[in-house]
């Protein structure tokens, strides 16, 4: 089964290289006791192409495309990788004409390990999509949602006080790719101090990713202090769905509601009710009725 999936991916890669559809293939190379990103440029090398690792390749692709003159790059992509590319396209961070994807559906074992809600890309070239399967365990979120605000304050200040500001979460995230990062500016986050003051660092990062995070989990895997950052992103992602019916990574044509006006990107009925409630005092007086 696994061999078959790998063979399918290699086959697709080989034909892309041979037909000139892609000049090189970015994937993972195994067979030396470790699995690492590798740029396959000759069909003979593809025997080493491995699917036995989960690695945010979009980050690597982005760097490569900056340096690389011309040519098309094929990238071996799982569901989360494909969603990274969707968000990168929205951000205009890369020229999509220069990228082709080789879609890989995850196995049940992989999906379970990642706690993935959609373990396959739209375009599948290798493996079988586990459609309608959701492996995310919401219990950890329920636990947080069930807390009082002050209990959450205690939870996060405790957990976040472990942060050593290594920037691993930012560096691993394919969607954290601004040239000048606010998290390095002393105006917003004190320099030379750990842990970062609550809530600056983590609130800023979380907000910047609110409409982009595709819940791949790379940040959490990278964190040496085992801070459950993905939990926060996941909760915020659910807010985006609830307030705006928006989900990052779904479709490159879908604009972030944080960048549009109320006509183009309206609130959901539930979101509208909520806003009406927090604006209520004012609304009552001036006859402000909904949006």
């Amino acid at each position: 089964m696994e061999e078959r999936r790998e063979e399918q991916a290699r086959e697709r890669a080989r034909s892309m290289l041979l037909s000139g559809e892609a000049r090189a293939v970015l994937g993972l190379r195994g067979g030396r006791g470790q699995v690492l990103p590798y740029l396959f440029s000759r069909p003979e090398e593809l025997g080493d192409l491995s699917l036995s690792g989960i690695y945010p390749l979009a980050k690597v692709a982005l760097r490569l495309l900056e340096k690389w003159e011309g040519g098309r790059l094929a990238v071996v992509s799982r569901g989360c990788d494909e969603r990274h590319f969707v968000e990168l396209e929205k951000k205009n961070a890369l020229d999509t004409r220069r990228v082709a994807l080789i879609g890989v559906a995850c196995t049940e074992e992989e999906a379970r390990e990642c706690g993935c809600s959609r373990p396959y890309p739209n375009q599948v070239d290798a493996g079988h999509p586990l459609a309608d399967a959701d492996f995310f365990d919401r219990r950890e979120l329920e636990e947080l949602l069930g807390m009082k605000v002050s209990e959450r304050r205690r939870y996060w200040t405790e957990v976040l006080s472990r942060c050593i500001k290594c920037y691993g979460c930012r560096n691993s995230c394919p969607l954290c790719n601004c040239v000048d990062c606010r998290l390095e500016e002393s105006r917003w986050v004190r320099v030379g101090e750990i842990p970062p003051e609550y809530p600056s660092f983590h609130l800023i990062r979380a907000f910047h990713l609110a409409d982009k995070c595709v819940d791949c989990g790379a940040c959490e895997r990278a964190c040496p202090m085992h801070i459950p950052i993905r939990r926060l992103h996941r909760l915020i992602g659910e807010e985006m769905k609830r307030l705006f019916d928006y989900r990052a990574g779904r479709d490159a044509g879908e604009k972030s509601p944080l960048l549009t006006d109320l006509e183009e990107g309206p609130f959901t009925t539930e979101g509208e009710d909520e806003v009406a409630r927090f604006m209520e005092a004012v609304a009552r007086e001036v006859g402000w009725v909904g949006l």
């Binding site: 304050r153 979380a206 907000f207 609110a210 807010e239 985006m240």
Partner: peptide, 22 residues
């Protein structure tokens, strides 16, 4: 429509604060 964006941003931020314990 600057205030449209602010309204949406603040609606989200309020919930984010709550999730973070504020």
């Amino acid at each position: 429509t600057g205030n449209h964006r602010a309204l949406k941003r603040f609606a989200l931020l309020r919930n984010m604060l709550s999730l973070l314990g504020i």
